[in-house]
């Protein structure tokens, strides 16, 4: 184990430069955030992830945000275990009827000010599952959504760009 730790010191770092905040996300977020909220949050965001019916593809890529290449925590963004500690809900899936109440209760448990990011095509518009008896459809049909990040699943890069836009917008004020 010592060898691998030493190697890490020598072998340059794998973490990649931060991408620019997504223009589309900035445009969507502009005007959505209240000044009071912006001041209170500064440049730090805590995220609670909610799978509301996803196939698990989006979760895999959200996980990747924590690997050393994307290293989300360097931006002050981190995933937390409870909605009560969260500023942001990242919601995936075509919100199934069986998950609707759990999503609503998670949203209510998240203190204000809060944002909801709908991650993935299913969360944006229901995706391939939209027409089912078992699905409500887009996340916005259940809780108010501040930012949409499409993709099936969105790449970690795309999610990073969206989250950085959220951070940028929330830091102004």
């Amino acid at each position: 184990m010592r060898k691998i730790l030493l190697e890490n010191l020598i072998r340059g770092r794998l973490t990649e430069p931060a991408p620019a905040a997504s223009e589309a996300a900035l445009a969507e977020l502009a005007g959505r955030l209240e000044r009071s909220a912006q001041r209170r949050l500064g440049r730090s965001l805590s995220i609670r992830e909610v799978d509301a019916g996803s196939c698990n593809g989006c979760e895999l890529e959200i996980h990747a945000l924590n690997n050393v290449f994307y290293d989300l925590e360097r931006f002050g963004i981190r995933f937390v275990a409870s909605p009560r500690h969260a500023d942001v809900l990242m919601v995936t899936g075509p919100v199934t009827h069986n998950m609707r109440e759990a999503l609503e209760r998670t949203w209510r448990a998240t203190p204000d000010p809060k944002w909801v990011v709908a991650v993935g095509d299913c969360a944006v518009d229901g995706g391939v599952f939209g027409a089912s008896y078992a699905c409500v459809g887009p996340v916005a049909a259940v809780v108010p959504v501040d930012l949409h990040i499409p993709g099936c699943p969105p790449t970690p890069q795309a999610m990073l760009e969206g989250l950085l836009a959220l951070l940028e917008t929330s830091a102004k004020g």
């Binding site: 019916g53 996803s54 075509p94 069986n98 759990a102 391939v128 027409a131 089912s132 008896y133 078992a134």
Partner: peptide, 23 residues
Amino acid sequence: LGYVHKGIDALMSGATLERAARL
């Protein structure tokens, strides 16, 4: 379990092979 039940059996019925493969 069952929380992420999306109704895949029903979505499959009547689907083209292309759509069914995506599902």
